[in-house]
Amino acid sequence: MLSFFEKIGGAIRSKITRLGAATRLFFSIISYSSDSFKRFNLTIREIYFTGVLSLVIIVVSAFFVGMVLGLQGYYTLQKYGSSEAIGVLVALALVRELGPVVTALLFAGRAGTAITAEIGLMKATEQLSAMEMMAVSPVARIVAPRFWAGIITMPLLASIFSMVGVLGGYVVAVPLIGVDEGAFWSQMQANVDFNYDIVNGFIKSVVFGIACTIIALFEGYDAPPTAEGVSRATTRTVVTSSLAVLGLDFVLTSFMLTV
């Protein structure tokens, strides 16, 4: 029985230690960031890998999510005779929740795992050590550019996701179902508030960007330098990022709805 509690205690302690280590990494990234801003081309390179290469999966999923929202929304709304409100439903669902959240989940799977695997592999093959021995800080050269790229990329991807999703909903609602085009857009515009809905969605995606990137970076940086260690770290990146995104989403939403 005692060993059971010991295990729980040990697990909690190791989680807290890792949280502390991740926070330390976060602050050392911030302190090295002036170096990496001076050489912004490194960050641009990472924006390519995290952003441009995630574009296809984001656009395709957004389009399907929008179409499904359109269909489902229509079948529910038509029962109440308000199928013109389909635009509002699709837009609000995307801008407030699905845009930032699904983008962050896809980002964790596509870009987050790539970051963890890459950094873990660099660690396993002593590339990070070699860099340190060349008097170049791996945090400044490798970690910080990826961090900033993640923060820049995520809101852009989330915006693209929401916009493409709305277009997907439009394709289903207007040409396929025959909802009036004018009503679709005007209802949407009357009910989606820029300052409230769109800005809040944007803030969410920035927070998710920070969370997902720092988790991916930390898992890679902290991975045991073996093939097994890296593969486990990659899995952990997806699991931890997804949970963090959903948890943070709840916290942020409850803040945004009360304020």
Binding site: E126, Q127, S129, A130, M131, E132, A135
Partner: peptide
Amino acid sequence: IYELRRKMGMLFQHGALFS
């Protein structure tokens, strides 16, 4: 330390080339 490391070169076991 970075100043000192500039006087050093190190060859790692498997080369540790940046892939």
